[in-house]
Design a protein around this nucleic acid. Structure first.
Lengths: 197, 197
DNA sequence: CTCGTTTCTTAACTTAAGTGAACGAGATGA
DNA sequence: TCATCTCGTTCACTTAAGTTAAGAAACGAG
């Protein structure tokens, strides 16, 4: 499993053997069963995660209803706001599938950065990149309709449609499960009306 | 103007005199007139910005229509995706008001980080924090209705309602100017029906 | 394999947002 | 000063999403 991690990092910078060893020593690789809740509302998150295999979901409970806001799959990383602010979380995080994750916290990070300052550069760059991408995703969401968002989702993450329940996908796309069902139906009849053979 | 910048940074870490000097030497502080376009679709952005005074707006032009997605005001920073990826931008950035900005690019950053490695830590932490906050804003947007978003906006950035045109605010809130106008009217009559004097 | 729960779909109805058009107030400029 | 343009509002109409409820299908535990 570490090899996937090394391969991912080497997209950003090549790793020396010493660095690889340091990662192997320090990085906690943990497996979790489908359904495991990693973070609950009220908790102060101790950890951030990097997904090696599986799928995480973040959600809120609003008026007794789950509202899914993100999915994290292979090579996505996630640090809850609660980890950054050290205040109780409002969001939940759980495993949609069996997961293999690397688990990290600021203390481990600090130790790592002191030994290998290049890792801090890596983290800074990754985080700047994620921030810019997240802003663009947010922009796309604002500037498109539920139907466009569903179509865009099918294009950009086709595998996920199969991996997550519809009702979770629906709230991720900012609509009710009924609306998503309706949109799917609408699209099927549209396709039939003008087939693209 | 530099004093505001130092005050902001010292929320994260206290600055030595040498560091302050380095910032004064390297940080480009520029003023721009209201209406100045800092980035256009197709450009590859050379710079990131930190707002000392004024208001920036990012937007897209979709089917000939401007769609506003963000406002950046005092002590907000913004690095376009185009700056990170070095690919042509799809978004525009312009000054809603006369602005005083610090202007930076990766080369200046690099020089700074080499002289004062602590600045890289500062940038990493700020960027991690912004990422987590941006994710939460996105979550809030997904889980609320246009009316709730308008009310939340009134609470969290009351000054901005006065500073930006309604039609820009409307698309920022993910709706048409007509809808925003309708919502405002609805809220007035609601307040009259159950006055909170 | 069966029972019970969860998930997905469908339908009828309600509510609110998008659309296109028109109007007036205020700013802008010749 | 008068004509023009922009911006915010309003209206009538269309379209789509939310709500409530019910039934079918898929899934999981025993």
């Amino acid at each position: 499993m570490e090899n996937e991690l090394f391969a991912f990092i080497s997209n950003y910078m090549p790793l020396s053997e010493a660095e690889k060893e340091a990662i192997t020593d320090l990085a906690l690789i943990r497996t979790y069963q489908k359904g495991t809740v990693l973070l609950e509302a009220g908790d102060i998150s101790p950890d951030g995660y990097f997904v090696l295999k599986g799928c995480l979901r973040s959600y809120y409970i609003i008026d007794g209803e789950e509202r899914t806001t993100s999915f994290y799959t292979e090579f996505d990383s996630f640090a809850p706001l609660s980890l950054v602010t050290k205040k109780p979380s409002e969001q939940y995080l759980s495993c949609v599938e069996d997961c293999i994750l690397t688990v990290g916290n600021p203390e481990m990070e600090k130790a790592m950065f002191e030994k290998f300052p290049r890792f801090e550069t890596l983290c800074r760059i990754m985080s700047e990149e994620l921030l810019a991408k997240n802003q663009v995703s947010f922009d796309d969401f604002k500037t498109s309709t539920p139907e466009q968002r569903y179509l865009e989702f099918l294009k950009s993450r086709p595998d996920l449609v199969q991996r997550v329940p519809q009702y979770q996908l629906a709230s991720y796309l900012g609509m009710t499960p009924q609306s998503l069902s309706r949109i799917r139906k609408r699209l099927v009849t549209k396709t039939k009306a003008s087939p693209a053979h």
